[in-house]
Amino acid sequence: MFYPNSPQTSPQLTQIPYGQQYAMMQRQIQQPYHPFATTEPQARLYPYHYQGPIQQEQGGFITQQSTAASPQYVQMRVTPVDQSIMSGYPNQTANGSSSSSFNYNIHPQQQQQQQQQQQQLRHHAMPVGSVPLQDDRYRKQLIVNYLAPDVTSTDLHELFSRFGELDGARIIYDKQTNMSKGYGFVYFCHAEDAKEAVERMSGYEFHGKWLKVGYSTNPLNIVPSNSSPYVHAGSRGAAG
């Protein structure tokens, strides 16, 4: 039997160049792979992502010199942007860049009308829970959420009447099932009393439920100042 490094198959040491006398086997001759043993700084910083320098080929596509990437890492192929796409944008300079302001050559009167329309939209648009300043009635009506099913309009009136005089209180019921929808409205005579009720009743436990109280901004629920107070009856038909 002959071994790869046996004296019968191995040459004389004098015939082997210096430095390879003890590297006779194939696994010894093959050098191990060192990912950080390279002179390129990109490979030292990113050993798993770097795959060699990027070269520009004919046709405008950018390719990489090395083989496919590892399945664990996804390499994105980048193509140059066609400058003709950006030619339609206004205020574009000769080098292809555009300024931040756009001039669509709008007539001054049209621009003024658009600004007025935007101001009107901001004036009428009102986020949930906010209180408008032009109508004091919005500051007097509250919406009470997360009410228990057994709470009546009379219970709601008695709960909030300790903060001040009320114009009314009612629970909203479903017309088909005649069941409470879980929320109601309270109408105060003074805005200061309503503000105190919002601050003190939010998070209050009532009939096993934690109440959420806020201003009601729905104009359909506003009680006119010259109208008669609501009837605080315990029956659902009268309260709904």
Rank of each mutant, 00 (worst) to 15 (best):
F2H: 06
Y3I: 08
S6T: 10
P7G: 08
Q12R: 14
L13D: 08
L13R: 14
L13A: 12
T14D: 07
T14W: 13
Q15L: 02
I16N: 07
I16A: 12
P17D: 05
P17S: 08
P17H: 06
G19Y: 05
Q20W: 06
Q21G: 08
Y22Q: 11
Y22P: 14
Q30G: 09
Q30L: 04
Q30I: 05
Q31H: 08
P32F: 03
Y33S: 13
H34F: 03
H34C: 05
F36K: 15
A37L: 05
T39D: 12
T39W: 15
E40C: 05
Q42C: 07
A43H: 11
A43Y: 05
L45G: 13
Y46R: 15
P47D: 11
Y50Q: 13
P53C: 07
I54L: 09
Q55H: 07
E57L: 06
E57A: 13
G59F: 03
G60D: 05
G60E: 12
G60S: 09
F61S: 14
I62A: 09
I62C: 11
T63M: 03
A68Y: 04
A68P: 10
A68I: 05
M76R: 15
R77F: 01
P80W: 02
Q83G: 05
I85G: 08
M86G: 14
M86E: 14
S87D: 06
S87Y: 03
P90C: 09
N91Y: 06
N91S: 09
Q92F: 07
T93I: 10
N95V: 04
G96C: 11
S97G: 09
S98E: 08
S99Y: 14
Y104A: 10
Y104E: 04
N105C: 05
I106F: 10
Q109C: 11
Q110L: 09
Q110V: 06
Q110R: 13
Q112L: 11
Q113T: 08
Q113Y: 11
Q115G: 08
Q115V: 09
Q115M: 09
Q116N: 11
Q117A: 10
Q119P: 07
Q120F: 13
H123Y: 12
H123L: 07
H124Y: 14
P127S: 08
P127N: 12
G129A: 07
G129K: 11
S130W: 11
L133H: 15
Q134A: 08
D136N: 06
D136T: 04
R137C: 09
R137P: 06
K140D: 01
Q141L: 01
Q141E: 02
V144E: 00
V144I: 14
V144C: 09
Y146C: 02
L147W: 00
L147N: 02
A148D: 03
A148M: 07
D150M: 14
V151G: 00
L159V: 12
L159W: 01
F163S: 02
E165A: 13
L166V: 02
L166P: 00
L166R: 00
G168S: 00
G168F: 01
I172W: 00
Y173P: 02
K175F: 02
N178M: 13
N178P: 02
G184K: 01
F185S: 02
F185C: 01
A194S: 03
A194E: 02
K195G: 14
A197R: 01
A197E: 01
E199L: 11
M201Q: 02
E205W: 15
F206L: 08
L211S: 01
L211R: 00
K212E: 02
K212R: 07
G214K: 01
Y215D: 00
S216R: 01
T217A: 03
N218E: 00
P219W: 00
L220V: 13
V223K: 14
P224T: 05
N226T: 04
S228E: 04
Y230Q: 05
H232G: 07
S235T: 08
S235I: 14
G237F: 15
G237Y: 10
